[in-house]
Amino acid sequence: MPSPSSAANEEDEHGHFRPLAELALGRMTADKLFLSAEGLVAGRGLCEADVDQAALKAKMIGQATEIFVLANSLKLGFSGHHAWTPLDRPWTLIKDRGAGSAHLDPFRALPDVNVLVTETVLR
């Protein structure tokens, strides 16, 4: 069975898998959700190129107990697209060592964000 995320990506080609992905996600829960995005802006959320991806990620976030966002330094502060998924509950940012405090301070200032820095470079 395809994952809900892969089913949503196939919608662009076939046009009928996104409803299946949303239905499947509505019937599942997750203890921990790990996701990334095209960009991540403190206080605004995940920036995506596509509203369908933003909607699917919102559904995934709603079904998860804990949220972890993986982002390299290039994604922090990027807002070059127009579809957004808000992060309006506690979550953890996992980022590589490439970003300095100028990139991290806006996230550290948010009360619901925990910032973890890894030694592994994220791509």
Results as ranks from 00 to 15, higher is better:
residue 98 G to K: 11
residue 93 L to S: 03
residue 50 D to P: 05
residue 70 L to W: 02
residue 27 R to W: 11
residue 47 C to T: 08
residue 80 G to T: 04
residue 94 I to S: 02
residue 89 R to S: 05
residue 73 S to Y: 07
residue 68 F to T: 00
residue 19 P to K: 02
residue 41 V to F: 04
residue 84 W to Q: 06
residue 32 K to Y: 04
residue 34 F to H: 06
residue 13 E to Q: 13
residue 27 R to F: 09
residue 24 A to H: 09
residue 65 T to H: 10
residue 64 A to Q: 10
residue 9 N to Q: 12
residue 85 T to E: 05
residue 121 V to D: 14
residue 91 W to I: 00
residue 100 G to L: 06
residue 101 S to N: 13
residue 2 P to N: 15
residue 80 G to N: 08
residue 3 S to V: 01
residue 85 T to F: 07
residue 12 D to I: 14
residue 9 N to K: 12
residue 102 A to N: 12
residue 55 A to W: 02
residue 60 M to R: 12
residue 66 E to L: 03
residue 31 D to T: 13
residue 35 L to Q: 07
residue 67 I to E: 03
residue 96 D to L: 04
residue 34 F to P: 01
residue 37 A to D: 02
residue 112 D to P: 00
residue 19 P to I: 08
residue 107 F to P: 03
residue 54 A to C: 09
residue 17 F to P: 03
residue 121 V to A: 14
residue 118 T to A: 13
residue 43 G to N: 13
residue 54 A to E: 08
residue 109 A to R: 08
residue 110 L to G: 01
residue 80 G to W: 10
residue 68 F to C: 00
residue 91 W to S: 02
residue 80 G to M: 10
residue 69 V to F: 04
residue 63 Q to C: 10
residue 12 D to T: 11
residue 21 A to N: 12
residue 70 L to P: 01
residue 97 R to Y: 10
residue 9 N to R: 15
residue 48 E to C: 12
residue 43 G to R: 08
residue 15 G to V: 03
residue 60 M to A: 15
residue 16 H to P: 00
residue 45 G to L: 13
residue 82 H to V: 07
residue 81 H to W: 11
residue 50 D to K: 06
residue 91 W to G: 03
residue 97 R to F: 12
residue 1 M to K: 09
residue 30 A to K: 07
residue 23 L to V: 10
residue 62 G to Q: 11
residue 37 A to G: 12
residue 68 F to A: 01
residue 107 F to A: 00
residue 87 L to A: 06
residue 112 D to H: 14
residue 66 E to H: 14
residue 80 G to D: 12
residue 117 V to L: 11
residue 24 A to N: 09
residue 64 A to W: 06
residue 55 A to Q: 12
residue 81 H to E: 13
residue 21 A to H: 06
residue 71 A to F: 02
residue 67 I to H: 04
residue 115 V to Y: 01
residue 96 D to Q: 02
residue 123 R to S: 14
residue 101 S to Y: 05
residue 68 F to L: 05
residue 85 T to I: 08
residue 87 L to S: 07
residue 64 A to P: 06
residue 29 T to Y: 06
residue 17 F to W: 14
residue 45 G to H: 09
residue 98 G to T: 03
residue 61 I to L: 15
residue 23 L to W: 14
residue 2 P to I: 07
residue 88 D to G: 11
residue 24 A to K: 08
residue 73 S to W: 05
residue 83 A to V: 09
residue 63 Q to S: 08
residue 11 E to R: 04
residue 65 T to I: 04
residue 89 R to Q: 14
residue 19 P to C: 06
residue 77 G to P: 11
residue 23 L to P: 00
residue 25 L to I: 15
residue 79 S to F: 09
residue 111 P to L: 05
residue 28 M to A: 14
residue 23 L to T: 14
residue 21 A to F: 07
